[in-house]
Structure formats: C-alpha cells, structure tokens
C-alpha cells in the first residue's frame, strides 16, 4: 500500500500518508508556567503512531518546553507547573497515579548535546534495560546492545570496541549512541530536542536517515531550528511562536501553503 501510494504521488512534492495511523499522543490546552510566567499558552495537538512530527519556531517559542512536557522532564525544573491534559494512548500522563519512571520507559528522549554516560559504549546501552530488568541473562543484554547499536547504525563502527568509553566517540557517533541508548528500552515514542544542532552536516545526514528508518516502529517528535531538516524528515510540522501553537499541518503544506501570516513570514525567512 505504501509503495503504491508513493508511486502514485511521485510527481507531487511530499506524498505522505498523514493521520492514517491511530493517534498516539493527544495534548489538550497544555499550559506551562515557570514561576509566574506563562511559557506556553494552551497547546492542543494530536500525534499519530509511526509518524515524525517536527516542531519549528524561533528561540524561546515554547517548542522545547512542550516537548519536555511529553515525558515530564519539566518535573525536574522546580518552578515549572503544567496544566491541561496529555494522553499517551489512553493514559493521562499527568495523572498523579502515573509513575514517571514508567512513562519515561515508554517515551524516550534524545538531547540537543550528545550526553553519553562517562562509561563504556556497552554500559551506555545496557544501563536502561538493566534499570528496568528487561534482560534476564547476560546473553539477552548482549543481544539488546547489539540490536540497539545496529538499529542506530553504529554497530559496524563500534562492534570491536564496546569497552571503549562512549565519550571517546565523535560528536555524531555520540548522538547515535544516545539514540541507541534510548531505543534499547524499546520506547513507543522518541522525543528529540534539536538532536543535530551540535553535529556537522554528514553526521546530521546519518541521524536523519536513522530517524526515517526508526519511523517504521516508533513515533518521533523532533524539535529543530533547521527548516530544511523539518522538510526532509517530518511528516507533519508544527510552528510555534511566543508560546502559541500557530499552525500544524502536513510538512509540504506548511512550507508551501501556510495558512497563517506568521508561519509564512517565518518559513520564508522574514523573521526568526
């Protein structure tokens, strides 16, 4: 079905089946306060299974803040307060009975700056599965490490030096290590906060290809400053400005036929 669709729409700009998969994340009227300051003014959106959604917008527009709401990383900021509802599948993730540990096992995250643990490559990957008791035996763990690294496209480069420190890898390799670390616990959603901003173009291409492959299995939400990147990888793109979600649409639509004036100004480079 997929190939048929691709062939059929080959002439068009970005043929993608959007919204055909079930909804994975629903956000309704999400507001975030840092102390008294409202940083996000009521964002609502649906994110579907196995799609890549990109958040774009100028600095300080709230896109990272919203991303961090989805695995409750904002909990670590003492002054932050979140209102509204976010559901992962049928679960309200801000329900007091929800254990944040369980949530974060389901919603993984990759950060702007690669942050491998100062341990061996193997230990970096094995940490998550070990935490959650996902591997019963050492061989299971070895298997998880290998398949995570393979899926992150890093296996060939590091298979002979799994004991070497993860911090000794290049920036791009470190970021793929962090992605491998995130998928080692088999999350359902992967959040990426500007994952390529510290990488050179070749490493960026690596990571982007990886995202497109991972899409087959995972829901991916990516924050990016790079509009070309959003255009290259995202099925749908959301434009944030000054704490508001201005517009969310199929990527091709958003870039070619934006509905809002502010979106048009931003994507055509008039500000931001």
């Amino acid at each position: 079905m997929m190939t048929e669709a691709t062939q059929q729409n080959a002439a068009e700009i970005k043929p993608k089946e959007v919204g055909t998969t079930p909804v994975k994340i629903t956000a309704r009227d999400v507001k975030v306060f840092y102390g008294d300051k409202e940083a996000l003014h009521g964002v609502s959106m649906d994110i579907h299974e196995r799609e890549i959604v990109a958040f774009i917008g100028p600095s300080g527009c709230g896109k990272s803040t919203f991303l961090r709401c989805m695995n409750r990383m904002n909990d670590t900021v003492p002054s932050a307060k979140v209102t509204g509802k976010i559901h992962l599948g049928a679960t309200d993730i801000y329900d007091p009975s929800i254990d944040v540990v369980l949530l974060r096992a389901q919603v993984g995250m990759v950060f702007q700056k690669p942050n491998p643990f100062p341990k061996s490559i193997y230990e970096n990957i094995a940490y998550g599965p070990r935490l959650h008791g996902l591997a019963k035996a050492k061989t299971d763990l070895d298997g998880i490490v290998e398949s995570s690294l393979k899926r992150a496209g890093l296996w060939e480069e590091v298979k002979d030096r799994l004991d070497a420190p993860g911090t000794g890898l290049s920036g791009g390799q470190q970021q793929r290590l962090c992605i491998a670390r995130a998928i080692a616990v088999s999350p359902e959603v992967i959040l990426m906060d500007e994952p390529c901003s510290a990488l050179d173009p070749i490493s960026t291409a690596h990571v982007e290809n990886l995202m497109l492959e991972l899409k087959e299995q995972y829901t991916i939400v990516i924050v990016t400053h790079n509009m070309q990147q959003a255009a290259r990888v995202a099925d749908r793109t959301a434009f944030f400005h000054l704490g508001d979600l201005i517009e969310m649409n199929e990527t091709s639509q958003l870039f070619v036929k934006p509905q809002e004036k502010r979106t048009e100004d931003y994507v055509t480079g008039r500000f931001g």
Binding site: N71, T76, R104, F111, K113, N115, Y127, V185
Partner: peptide, 14 residues
Amino acid sequence: PPSIREGALALGAS
C-alpha cells in the same frame, strides 16, 4: 553537568 542527570532520568531512572 546536568546533562548526565537528564540522560539517566530520560531513560527512566529514578
């Protein structure tokens, strides 16, 4: 660096 803490927390460490 706080990134180390965040990395662990994001993996589901308490």
